[in-house]
Amino acid sequence: MGERRLPLTVVGGYLGVGKTTLVNRLLSTTDGTRFAVLVNDLGAVNVDAALLESTGADRIVLSNGCLCCSLADGLTDVMFELAERTDEFDHVVIELSGVGLPGPVARWGRAPGFVPGTTLVLAAADSVVDRLADPLVGDTVARQLAEADLVALTRTDLVERDAVAEARAAVTRHTTAPLAVGPSAALPWSTIVGAAGDPRGPAGEGEPGPTRPGFVAHTVEVAGWSRDRLTTWLDRRPVEVWRAKGIVDLAEGRHIVQVVGRRIEVTAAEPAATSTPLVVVVPEGPVVGVASWLAAGMS
């Protein structure tokens, strides 16, 4: 087992929220990130045939460096295998079943070979209100949302604007996690998943990933701030701000800053790391509180 540790993202959410779409998108990535994605149903994985290098009963190997593994024999065996192969991947994503609770699985982020990444729970704008009211699964959906670091509200293009607001309100009654809201196709999935790579690894260039329509990146100059000042400011961010990243020179030295969803990590950087601006991704357009928060950071 090498020194390298892979960020672990857990993706949850009930049926019909777009988990499989997300998995297919990650596996088809062209930004060079080598994802190892663990899924319950390998048969649902659908990537461009041109990317297929080999397919087996329990795994698909792709020419872009990605791997998709079935969880048929349980999570433990696959995680021990990946912990031995950290040099071959950049990021691990575990897709839960529709009723899976993220918490126990996310704990694998502390196991040898891994670092905790985002616990991402998907909710669909066209179904989450009904799901939460469902006598059989409402409590499960609510627990999934409560355990999320970040919630992606998907399928917003399939409903009226009022319904999106209603869905957003229903979700925020069950979680304090920030929301990424948008049509599934437009959401910047690799950014949401935290695909910019292991903050402690060689790939930590500070780019928060490509932005997509509906999102804008702002640069904030925080050099010379104390660690306390930075974390206090980050703590006060509006819920719409769910992604920020940079390698910045604080009063206490060079630090890596990672914000994914409600997780904030400020850790000492390797001396060799090149400093970058702190980049904050926010939704496009006027969002209450974002401008004043950014202004407070820039003043």
């Binding site: 999570l75 433990t76 065996d77 995680m79 021990f80 126990p104 699985v105 996310a106 704990r107 694998w108 982020g109 502390r110 196991a111 040898p112």
Partner: peptide, 18 residues
């Protein structure tokens, strides 16, 4: 050690057990 994720922290013991 909680859940398989916690047990896995005991290194080779957990897979050996199973």
């Amino acid at each position: 050690l909680l859940e398989p994720a916690g047990m896995a922290r005991a290194g080779d013991l957990f897979p050996s057990y199973y």
